[in-house]
Amino acid sequence: MVHPNPDAGGAGSPLIEFRTLSKIYGTGTAAVAALRGVDLTIDAGEFVAFMGPSGSGKSTAMNILGCLDVPSAGSYRFSGTAVETLDRDARATLRRHYLGFVFQGFNLLARTSALENVELPLLYRRVGPRERHQRAAEALATVGLTGWETHTPNELSGGQQQRVAIARALVSLPTVLLADEPTGNLDTVRSHDIMHLLRDLNQTRGITVVMVTHEAEMAAYASRILSFRDGQLESSAAARGA
C-alpha cells in the first residue's frame, strides 16, 4: 500500500495541485462535465474560498480534493503524490491522516452522541480510549460545545450540528480542512462564529483551509478566492484588498 507523506514534499512542491483536471458524470448523451480542465494550486497554510454559481463544480472539486471522488482525467497531486494512482485503501489512509471534511449536510451519525461522533476519526486512527475522549472533548470545546457532549444530532440545532461536524474534522489535526458551505444553513451571527473558528484554526494551528461559500462576506475571511464557472476556474484574486 502506498503511504503518501505530505511533509516529504518539502517547500518546493505545493500541497495541492490540480493539472487539467476533469470530472465527467454519466456517459454518452447524458454525460455532464462538472469540471473541465481545472488547473489550481494551493500551498500549505493558505485559506482558500471557492465561489461561483450553483452547478459550477465547486462541490465536485472539493470532493476530489478530499479524495472522496476520483477525477475522470488530469492529475491531482497531494503533497507530490499522484492521488489518481492510489488504490481505495491508500486514499482512505490519506483521508484518515491528512484530511478533515465538513460536509454541506453535516453528515453526522444519527442516534450517536456528539462526543462519539467527534471520536470516530480517532477510533479509525487507533487512538486509545482515554486520549480519544480527551481530544474529542477538547475539539468540542474549541467549537464552543462544552456541555453538549452527550447530545445526539437530532437534539442539536443546525449551527450546533455544523460545529460538531467541524469538531469531527479538526479533532485529528488534519493538514487540510475542507468545508463545503459550512455556513450554508446558518444565520449571520452563527456564520461569523464559524468563520472566526476556521480563521483561528488556519492562523494558530497552521491548518490549510479550503471552503466553498456563496456569500462574499464569508469569502472575505479567506486569503484567496477561486471562482468557478461552468466547471472552469475564472480568476484568481487576492481577497483582501481586492
Binding site: 451519525l109 479509525y124 486512527r125
Partner: peptide, 15 residues
C-alpha cells in the same frame, strides 16, 4: 450513508 460517513472520515473498506 453511514458507511459513506465512515469511509469519508478515514475508515478502510475492511474496517
Amino acid at each position: 450513508r453511514e458507511i459513506g460517513i465512515r469511509l469519508a472520515i478515514g475508515a478502510l473498506e475492511h474496517e
